[in-house]
Design a protein around this nucleic acid. Sequence first.
DNA 1: GTAGTTCTTGAACCAGAGGTCAAATACGTG
DNA 2: CACGTATTTGACCTCTGGTTCAAGAACTAC
Lengths: 191, 191
Amino acid sequence: MGRPKQFDEEAAVAQAMEVFWTNGYAGSSPAELAEAAGIGKGSLYHAFGSKRELFGRALELYDRAGAAFAEEFLAAPGSTKERVRAYLRLLVDVDFDAPVRRGCLAVNTALELGGRDEGATAAVRRAVERSADLLAARIERGKLDGDVPAAVDATEQARFLMVTLAGLRVTARIFDRETVHAAIDTAVAHL
Amino acid sequence: MGRPKQFDEEAAVAQAMEVFWTNGYAGSSPAELAEAAGIGKGSLYHAFGSKRELFGRALELYDRAGAAFAEEFLAAPGSTKERVRAYLRLLVDVDFDAPVRRGCLAVNTALELGGRDEGATAAVRRAVERSADLLAARIERGKLDGDVPAAVDATEQARFLMVTLAGLRVTARIFDRETVHAAIDTAVAHL
DNA sequence: GTAGTTCTTGAACCAGAGGTCAAATACGTG
DNA sequence: CACGTATTTGACCTCTGGTTCAAGAACTAC
């Protein structure tokens, strides 16, 4: 039945994610997206319907991949404070080491589409909540490990860390690595 | 000499600032900018040269106005913690009360142009540093007032507050007022 | 009034955006 | 092999963006 798909849809979404991440939603043209995926514009529209829907898929992928990574990274050996500090540093360092500073797709999207596009807003909110939950779980574990004072409100701290993380991503776009690292140290000192 | 200007240049910049603030740099068309300023497109180009130059003027105005406001607000009576908390709350509340959530022009610009446009990046950096200096000065005063422990590093805390503020601006785009207020309380608790 | 200068304006320009479509292509089935 | 179906493609369409420009309008100096 019918001609078989000549490309992997998930791979195309992954490529699209890179483009959106680098250039933003409005800044990514169908032509670029199609070229990055190695297919024609027509195929892209046939497979995904619209640029907006493709973006939705890209956001979803970003969320899943990010959460999987965070879960694994936070579980590695070390104290809570050490792990959280390493996590924050890694995220900004990846950006500093990259050829082009693109920040975080979720943060970028929050600013570009937050409040204007209901679906995108909700998707970003879900992604942030998911990461906050992972951090909260890690802090709770820290309490069991005797790492973190029992009086600490894990959820509150986790949410605040997500706010801080967003701020770090923004700051990393305009300041240098040392400045951002210093801010991270201040942030985790409070834990 | 020649026909007199029929509009106030500074007022036009102020209107442009509003448009850029609401729609972003790329999202603001010359047509919109001209209409907001109440002049023709040609006049706009005659007076400002290009969209980019007009944006530079708008950023400059935003910086000046923001710094003037912060200076006055932080100097009002109250403890350091109270004033800083009120400052952060005011900034996000203005956004929540506005018909459309537009965040902070400096943060928006950091994300949209940071790393891509050298001039814009530097302008935002200057604006952030200026605000950080005002906060640091307020914290130093707090030390004199006996408000803030003498051991606190005012510069470090001020920089961290700016990171937090950026994060709050991002968060305010996707979460509700209560969530953001809670984050502010967590932030100032550390002071 | 004429000249010279500066400002204003809408029309016009080109490039690129987002999206559609008819034709061509590759499969399974009878 | 003919046929129905699903996919691919680049040409094509319309709309808007950022910018330029020629013409006119308002002023000063002579």
